[in-house]
Simulated assay, not measured.
Amino acid sequence: MEPTKYIKSNRLIVNDNKAYLFVKRFIDVFGALIGLVLLSPLFLVVSILIKAEDPNGGVFFRQVRVGKNGKKFNIYKFRSMVSNAEQLLEGLLDKNETTGAMFKMKDDPRITRIGHFIRKTSIDELPQLVNVLRGDMSLVGPRPPLPREVDEYSDYDMQRLLVTPGCTGLWQVSGRSNVGFKEMIELDLEYIRKQSIGLDLKIILCTVRVLFGSKDAF
């Protein structure tokens, strides 16, 4: 195995070992393919339920997010909100229940009935496996932020954009919605400093546990 190489930012050193990146990408592609095949019946059921509740809206929700090195991409999710959710957001910003450049509201009126269920179980996130196949995301990494969130980032916060964002990460398995913005940044930077295949696999296993028992998702 070749010696470890690093990319330096002003404050953070990012592991750029080619062997690690190759194995990580292999796990991403293999895991995403297996997940899409095994979960295809669930995808069908959820799609039917979403259309049954709101026939005028689409099954999937597409949104611009910011990835590695500030590159923007479209993230895919099952739609859990009413069709005009983005237009209604402005009137809800004063009810934000988290800190910093994020918006979280436990009893968000924009969420549909099926939306509450798929958010609680994180089923709404499963279409992101397509993003993993495309290379926009990894199975494990920092949460991909919205452009409006990045606009409020400090230079310190921007360091979380040095790596490929993930479907799950230290933030997601460490309290998720109960963890504030500053704590999320620190967890993401801790992951970047310590990233390894062993840590990725540990986070994936923790994510499975969270999915079947978490009350923190909203």
Rank of each mutant, 00 (worst) to 15 (best):
G213F: 03
F117Q: 10
S196A: 11
E186A: 15
A85E: 04
A32L: 07
I50T: 03
S177M: 09
Q172P: 05
G141C: 11
E86T: 04
Q128R: 07
N15T: 11
A85P: 03
I204A: 01
D124S: 00
K104T: 01
K215T: 14
S214Q: 10
V59E: 00
G213K: 01
T207F: 06
E125T: 12
L92V: 07
F181V: 04
N84M: 04
D54Q: 07
K24I: 05
T98S: 12
A19L: 15
S214P: 06
P41Q: 07
E183C: 02
R193G: 11
N10L: 14
E186W: 03
K5H: 09
F218H: 09
T112C: 11
T168Y: 13
R143C: 00
K194I: 04
L92T: 00
M137Q: 14
I75Q: 10
L161D: 09
G198L: 13
G135N: 10
K194F: 02
M158F: 13
N15V: 08
S174C: 15
D188V: 03
I34K: 01
L139D: 00
G141Q: 11
L201C: 12
G198E: 12
L146E: 05
D108A: 05
L36V: 04
M81D: 06
I111N: 04
K68C: 14
L139C: 08
E183R: 00
V150F: 11
V130N: 11
M137I: 12
V82S: 00
H116T: 00
I75H: 00
I7K: 05
K5I: 11
I75V: 10
S138N: 09
I192V: 10
S154G: 01
E97K: 05
T4D: 02
V23E: 06
L205F: 15
N10I: 01
H116D: 06
N69K: 13
R110G: 02
G175L: 05
R11V: 12
D94W: 03
R25S: 05
V163R: 08
I114S: 01
I13A: 14
F30C: 12
D108S: 00
R11C: 08
L170F: 03
Y6K: 09
D155G: 01
Y191S: 10
R176D: 07
G175T: 02
R11N: 14
I185Y: 13
E149R: 03
Y191A: 01
S9G: 09
S9R: 06
E97W: 05
I75P: 08
